[in-house]
């Protein structure tokens, strides 16, 4: 029982990667940046009052599941999605899908995936992967962040799919029911870009979208006064990890989104999108520069190279450039 025709491609980010891999299997030629952009994956939020393992929550992407849902909807692909009460039912349903010759995507906790090295395993419950077959009692796994396919024992997979915490995957599984013959990429791309601009620029609350970058910049400025050096260092470290950890595609998704803008620009023959792509690439470099200096500051735990004030300024500049960029992207005449 294995979907032998399944082709694994490595991607930068798990959710857009799984989406691209499943859609390609269904005969839709789509790249990861395209899936990410149409699904309006790029975002920013900083929640000082929501502590994740003791540090304030920061994210560079939209909430889990949104990319996949928006992309498939915008392309007119019909998906089946399902959650389960028990691991037994979840495994049975998975076996049935595989028997019908379809690969299935699912949510899992990275902590319970034995094939990942320890350095990557923590209680993060929204990791996406594809199971494309079963052989000798093991599931065949296509994890988009890996270069190659791998395997997992059913009991291990069950543990990962039924991990507890926030969010709880509860065995969440999805597969392509039917794909359309003709796809209107133009409309899908437009809808994705419009939504991204809306989410970046419109939220009236300081914790979401572009505004949150300035909030984080202000907070970082206060770290030396408010926190012990150890805490300040851990808080900064968390921002860098969110920017670069598992499947962020570099620079907090900025390069991934710039790749999307470029591909969209070529496809729709629009020079303005190509220009925006080049600009975002530069902003991505600014983000990397910020992370680089933050890491230096963290390592030394003293402010000899760049102080918290200067870090805060680097971040504020990223925020200003992005606000300017997305304001102009929002004004595109389609």
């Amino acid at each position: 029982m294995s979907t032998t025709s399944y082709q694994h491609y490595q991607h930068a980010h798990c959710e857009s990667g799984v989406t691209a891999n499943l859609l390609r299997h269904a005969g839709i030629s789509i790249s990861e940046p395209m899936a990410f952009g149409i699904g309006a994956g790029i975002f920013f939020a900083h929640l000082p009052f929501v502590k994740v393992s003791g540090t304030p929550g920061t994210t560079f992407r939209t909430w889990p599941g949104a990319i996949f849902k928006r992309t498939t909807q915008r392309l007119g692909v019909e998906m089946h999605t399902q959650r389960f009460r028990t691991p037994e039912r979840a495994n049975q349903a998975l076996d049935d899908v595989l028997a019908s010759g379809k690969p299935a995507g699912m949510l899992s906790s990275v902590y319970y995936l034995p094939y990942l090295p320890e350095a990557f395993r923590f209680h993060f419950n929204a990791h996406n992967l594809v199971v494309y077959g079963k052989q000798k009692g093991q599931y065949l796994v296509s994890d988009p962040i890996l270069e190659d396919v791998t395997t997992i024992l059913p009991q291990d997979l069950a543990k990962a799919r039924f991990a507890k915490g926030t969010p709880e995957p509860r065995g969440f599984m999805y597969y392509v029911k039917s794909a359309p013959q003709q796809i209107d990429y133009t409309r899908a791309i437009q809808a994705g870009i419009k939504q991204t601009c809306f989410f970046m620029l419109s939220p009236p609350l300081p914790w979401f979208g572009n505004k949150a970058i300035f909030l984080l910049a202000k907070q970082i400025k206060k770290y030396p006064q408010k926190l012990t050096p150890r805490k300040a260092s851990l808080y900064l470290g968390n921002v860098i990890r969110m920017q670069e950890e598992i499947g962020t595609g570099g620079a907090g998704f900025r390069f991934l989104y710039a790749a999307f803008l470029q591909e969209a620009g070529v496809l729709l023959q629009r020079d303005d999108l190509l220009g925006f792509s080049a600009e975002l690439t530069k902003i991505g470099d600014d983000w990397r520069n910020f992370a680089y200096h933050a890491a230096r500051l963290m390592k030394d735990r003293k402010s000899d190279l760049v102080s918290y004030d200067e870090l805060s300024d680097l971040l504020r500049i990223c925020g200003e450039k992005e606000r300017d960029l997305f304001t102009r992207v929002q004004k595109i005449k389609w």
């Binding site: 860098i240 990890r241 920017q243 670069e244 680089y292 890491a295 963290m298 390592k299």
Partner: peptide, 10 residues
């Protein structure tokens, strides 16, 4: 390097 430092620290 930057990510390694942050992850190692964590």
């Amino acid at each position: 390097e930057a990510e390694n430092i942050a992850t190692k620290q964590a």
